[in-house]
Design a protein around this nucleic acid. Sequence first.
DNA 1: CACCGTTGTTCTCCTTTCGTTCTCTCCGGT
DNA 2: ACCGGAGAGAACGAAAGGAGAACAACGGTG
Lengths: 200, 200
Amino acid sequence: MKPALTRRQQEVYDFLREQAADLHPSPSLEELCRAMDLNSRGSLHKHIRALVEAGLVEPMSRGRGIRLAAGADAPGHLPFLGYIAAGRPIEAVVDPREVEIPAWLRGARPCYVLEVRGESMVDEGILDGDRVVVESRDHARNGEIVVALVDDREATLKRIEQRPGKTVLHPANAAMAPLEFAPERVAVQGVVTGLLRSYR
Amino acid sequence: MKPALTRRQQEVYDFLREQAADLHPSPSLEELCRAMDLNSRGSLHKHIRALVEAGLVEPMSRGRGIRLAAGADAPGHLPFLGYIAAGRPIEAVVDPREVEIPAWLRGARPCYVLEVRGESMVDEGILDGDRVVVESRDHARNGEIVVALVDDREATLKRIEQRPGKTVLHPANAAMAPLEFAPERVAVQGVVTGLLRSYR
DNA sequence: CACCGTTGTTCTCCTTTCGTTCTCTCCGGT
DNA sequence: ACCGGAGAGAACGAAAGGAGAACAACGGTG
């Protein structure tokens, strides 16, 4: 019972997540229409209904807008898969712990948590010991921070730039230079959607 | 048991939270009417009754006042109190929403959430738009990042260094110099215990 | 005490909004 | 052609939101 989202349904869902992450109140159908550049509530309603059946959105009831499903996709915890450092493969952690992650930091697809080792992204505000929420994806948009696997050996955390004929991985550290690869050598494993840091 | 608030009910509830946060006395129905731009007490009373049934507001007594119920915070959530412009100005207005925060980012005492404005802490990995979890405290250890109130006017986010005779607030931005004050002029409001960032 | 204004409460009546369903059209792909 | 995704628009019923009147319980003033 998981018919997979269509293009527009995905757009609507992404927009709802954005809104929620920005602390906006649940929009009504009409507000959503305006935001999505639609002129018909009926059309939007079809998409919402699809999302409800997919378990991603709570069934609407009168007057309280459209809210993301809290129960279905929010066990509140994500698996902690290990550590990631520039230049080395991901160190898988033996004991599969789980980390509590708020819903507004998660992506649409399944997510997991990695802990950052090293200083390769300090200029982007990602420090040693930070935990990043990674959304499992095999593609990325330019400018996103990705977990990239180079030559099936080295997993790194970098900002990605895909250009015709080459893929550039930008570290965010003045002491390191951007790395260029043939596109075939770089496999995107996931995209960073959130970051958490504990002081203590 | 938990019918979820409707649109207007949420507005009324938010307004009451603002009032309470600013030490205003419990308003009467008519005062609330004027504040909410309503012409009828009866209409407002419907919303209040809904809030009472939701357990968010204490039942009114004939004397005077609409009081918030104690301990109505959702579990796993912390109040979002507004913005802290880490540059110079005062702490900003109250925006009484709640943010989901994992337990492992919270401190021992009551906590709240602020959103960071400005670049004064970039070298510590705190960027514009990040949300910080602040534990309410009136003292700090050296090296902790604190919300400090200087001369009862300016709230800033800085790393604190307390030395005999003077208190130094260190911004983490190469373009800004540390600020030195007499200890009496600096009041610690809270200590940063966690940080969250959403990418997208 | 009777008088008055205030405050909480309940009740009708009305308008607006919202979710829902329906039909019809358009476009792109196999 | 066929089909499914996507949008427009109309229409309906139910709920939300609001206005206003009416009423009981107080608190003061004369």
